[in-house]
């Protein structure tokens, strides 16, 4: 397993192939869009999808917590699929999450799905801002955000391959969704393209490493 380093505003950030960013200088682990309890949300609407999504997401989170032993975990919003999600947690999942929170400081930023749960709307640390959805930036700011669940489609000699990805330029880092049941939005879609007017890079997730491509490369897969 290899994380890919990127450098922004004099800091080094590691893009982990599991879909999280680690900031060594602050020992901070950054993730977006966990969408916990999405399955039970669907179940209430008649689609009895397997109820293991929270467990699967927490399993992957546990691996990252072991790997990086972060001081702080910054969750960039939509951590629960809906405002009642926390109340639906199975007892053992709730206990596990509480153990994580006892061992690491968690900053829960509010997203559009879990707005009523009372998370902060934004976090600042030096030049870095952390929020759910990308917004206008001041000069010199570096922004970490989620919300869009970016995925990129890359042409290969045997057809196009689509994977969740990070999207970055000099100012923004857009994180893929960390949830087990979350889909994605192509980076060619207008809302994502508008955030990167001068192009950028995509980093596609896989088991062992991330694969880097110019954003323009993902724009059109023939």
């Amino acid at each position: 397993m290899n994380a890919a380093p990127i450098h922004r505003a004099g800091h080094r950030f590691m893009l982990d192939p599991a879909g999280a960013v680690f900031w060594p200088a602050r020992r901070a682990l950054i993730l977006a869009d966990l969408h916990l309890e999405k399955a039970s949300f669907s179940a209430a609407r008649g689609a009895l999808v397997p109820p293991y999504d929270t467990r699967a997401t927490l399993d992957r989170l546990a691996l990252l917590l072991r790997r990086y032993a972060p001081d702080v975990v910054i969750a960039l919003g939509d951590s629960f699929h809906d405002d009642q999600g926390e109340a639906r947690l199975a007892a053992e999942d709730a206990a596990r999450l509480a153990r994580f929170e006892a061992a690491h400081r968690f900053v829960w930023i509010a997203g559009n799905h879990d707005q009523a749960m009372g998370g902060a709307t934004m976090l600042r640390d030096e030049a870095c801002v952390f929020r759910h959805q990308a917004a206008a930036l001041e000069a010199g700011q570096i922004e970490f955000s989620g919300h869009f669940h970016p995925k990129a489609r890359i042409a290969t000699r045997a057809g196009a391959i689509a994977r969740p990805c990070f999207v970055t330029d000099q100012h923004r880092v857009l994180l893929p969704s960390f949830g087990a049941y979350t889909g994605g939005l192509e980076v060619t879609a207008a809302p994502i393209r508008a955030l990167f007017p001068r192009g950028g890079q995509v980093f596609l997730l896989s088991r062992e490493r991330v694969f880097a491509f110019p954003l323009a490369h993902a724009a059109k897969a023939a």
């Binding site: 000699r157 596609l204 896989s206």
Partner: peptide, 23 residues
């Protein structure tokens, strides 16, 4: 060679690595 569709975890990673090197 090069005309057929290949799919599956490892094969996909190999293809992505190839595409990355080309890019």
């Amino acid at each position: 060679i090069g005309r057929e569709q290949i799919r599956g975890g490892e094969a996909e990673d190999a293809l992505l690595a190839e595409a990355e090197a080309e890019a």
